[in-house]
Amino acid sequence: MGVKGKTAWTKKEALLCIPERNTGSEEIFKDNGDLVLSFPVVYKPFFMRLWRIVGATPRETFNRKIQLDRLGADVWSLIDGKRDVKTIIKSFASLHGLDNREAEISVTLFLRSLGEKGLISINDP
């Protein structure tokens, strides 16, 4: 995950962090409200070596796609590099009439998975 600086925050600090989209991702909106994110992923060194062994020109990246449902797309749209995690949670909770704690758990898990895929970076408050 693109975490800069500290590796462990308290919950209060973590809620004040600002997630930011990585610029390499492309968005494709579907009719049913789903969102497909296409983003470049760097090949692992093993595959790079394999390319060389078979004599092909090694490619450094390939495009991976993930499909977000309407709820995921809503969180994605709230990530603008200005809103902190707490604000995103509150906006998401009020948008869907959810309890804050329920929204907090689902949004933070979702942000973590986006971070692990390299789609967002988390900036210190």
């Binding site: 409200g33 449902d69 309407r70 709820l71 869907h96 009439g97 959810l98 329920e102």
Partner: peptide
Amino acid sequence: GPASFLLS
């Protein structure tokens, strides 16, 4: 929940 999403 949310019902609006699950029942869309």
